[in-house]
Amino acid sequence: MNPAPSIIAFTTFSGLGFGLLFWLGMDPTPPRGWVAFVFFFIGFALALGGLAASAQHLGRPERALKAFSQWRSSWLSREACCAVAALVTMGLYAAGLVFADVKIPPLGWLGAALSLGTVFTTSMIYTQLKTVPRWHNRLTPLLFLSLSLAGGALLSGRVTLSLALILIVGALQVVWWRIGDKALQASGTTLGTATGLGDGGRVRAFEPPHTGTNYLLREMVYVVARRHARKLRGIALILMMVLPILLLLAPFHHITALLALLSHVTGVLTARWLFFAEAEHVVGLYYGKR
């Protein structure tokens, strides 16, 4: 799939933002006053920034409101609804903490649940796609959720928790990659089934329908060199997991914590780039690409 920067940014940052909001909502002793303002501001900025980035990806962004209507069946619609619900709930909760110094725990819990729900619905947009076997995997939501929780924990300064979560993230990521590498094959979809010609012999794409490119190729057929991908996976793991853990294990300092966060986020962005770039849409088979 095309690793469009807008989508990579959207999923990464909104995941981070909602992760932070989750922890804020669950926090038995949440910050208050201007500290709360700063935390919530970061959470909202990330979540909203991500949503704005995703709107960029739309052909007709001015109609974005229509996306709220199909929550009964569409994960994308659910995500939109969930995100707005989460933001509104958390907004109320935050307003209480920042402006009135009141804490309404049920509102926080609801907001936290909705925040996680948003991350889950985001992940389901990808997970539901049978057409992208690498994504069509039960671990995909877990990966998204754990990333969001870890990032949020890191952002909110929960050192021990984030250490544990980052470890889980790393492990999940590695397992997810391994499963993903076999997913297309495991899906049973081949050029043979795609064309129905498989029983007649070995099928090979000869001439594409156009010598030039088209929307499908741009959007759904992105080929990364294997070697390149492996190197990036290493980098992603180091940035997302190894380096933050080392930094967090070092004596606490705001600078190291910030560095750990930056490293983690860069790592997640790299992994997210791979999430798209490595994902093979079955339509690529028609074009002789996998």
Binding site: L58, G59, K66, L76, T131, T189, N214, Y215, E219, V283
Partner: peptide, 21 residues
């Protein structure tokens, strides 16, 4: 009603949908 999100094209295994640029 279409917002051009492209998700339907992703969901189609056959490459039967194209977003008009």
């Amino acid at each position: 009603d279409c917002i051009g999100c492209g998700l339907c094209a992703w969901a189609c295994p056959y490459g039967a949908r194209e977003l008009d640029a």
